[in-house]
Design a protein around this nucleic acid. Structure first.
Length: 278
DNA sequence: AAACACTTCAACCGCCGCTAG
DNA sequence: GCTAGCGGCGGTTGAAGTGTT
């Protein structure tokens, strides 16, 4: 009997009709009670599937498009503090879903760790993020804004927060009643980041109002995803590396041939790797 | 133009914690 | 106190899209 019911359940990609059914139902009755909702809306989907579709895709305030530099910075910082607690991290990135952040981390950040041949949770990688990636991101953000000094001035604080404050702020956060209220260390220190992100409103694929990134200084963020410099390195960067350690590393070079890492940067990273015996 | 490799991300799965009965 | 049902979460998968040879 149960099997029979499962046989009827649809799986896989959602159709436009299903999306409309779900949106209309939620517009009229609200969310929650997902199993009942699925049935009442006439959807041959599990409640879980409906919830996921709504939260990750159809929700009006879901923000689509590329992760901005500011968001990347925030993700790095929050992941440093909380680890793979995607939903918690997502709470600090309005309009972004845990799924999206998780995907970003897996496809972009973990890839970098792999190329450095270190574990994404290792000290090496965390230090690399902290001392190299995050500062570079901040420089890029500053550059995008066309100068200004606020972010760079705040850098030591940010790095400090990613270190000494970790356990303390985490504990405070855990004990607070809501995630949003946690941020004696969190959003207060990160506010300089979130302040940069302007938002405009638009409509989603079905004409519902949604939020949309308004890239500061725009400039086609597509090309800079996943890298503090935003260049896809096709074998340039640090040059050939038999070990494959840094070859093709998106952080390290430009597809246009101009290496954005200074010799000093490269030396620092190499020394860092050497100190870990890599 | 075609085949292959790689990347992205929507969706599913399984586990866990909470809660109502 | 026990249990079933549900929602939420993190991990994983695979189809589709994109890039490269």
């Amino acid at each position: 009997m149960e099997e029979e019911a499962n046989m009827e359940l649809r799986r896989g990609p959602w159709t436009v009709e299903e999306d409309l059914l779900l949106m209309n139902y939620i517009a009229n009755h609200g969310e929650g009670r997902w199993n009942l909702l699925a049935e009442a809306a006439g959807l041959k989907r599990t409640g879980k599937s409906c919830r996921l579709r709504w939260l990750n895709y159809l929700r009006p305030d879901v923000r689509r498009g590329n992760i901005t530099l500011e968001e990347q910075l925030k993700i790095l910082e929050l992941h440093y503090r909380w680890g793979n607690r995607w939903s918690k991290i997502a709470q600090h990135l309005p309009g972004r879903t845990d799924n999206e952040i998780k995907n970003y981390w897996r496809t972009r950040v973990q890839k970098q760790a792999k190329q450095l041949q270190c574990d994404v949770n290792s000290k090496l990688f965390k230090d690399t993020m902290r001392y190299i990636w995050i500062p570079r991101l901040m420089e890029r953000i500053q550059a995008q804004r066309g100068g200004g000094t606020a972010s760079l001035e705040a850098l030591p604080q940010l790095c400090g927060a990613a270190d000494d404050g970790v356990s303390q702020s985490y504990t405070q956060d855990e004990n607070s009643s809501t995630a949003a209220s946690s941020d004696s260390m969190g959003t207060s220190q990160m506010s300089m980041v979130s302040d940069f992100t302007a938002e405009t409103s638009s409509t989603n694929c079905y004409g519902m109002k949604v939020q949309e990134n308004s890239q500061i200084g725009h400039g086609g963020y597509q090309e800079c995803l996943g890298s503090p410099y935003g260049y896809a390195d096709h074998g340039h960067g640090l040059g050939s590396n038999q070990g494959g350690q840094l070859e093709g590393n998106m952080w390290l070079g430009s597809s246009e041939g101009s290496t954005v890492w200074s010799d000093e940067d490269i030396w620092l990273l190499q020394q860092h790797c050497l100190s870990y015996g890599l």
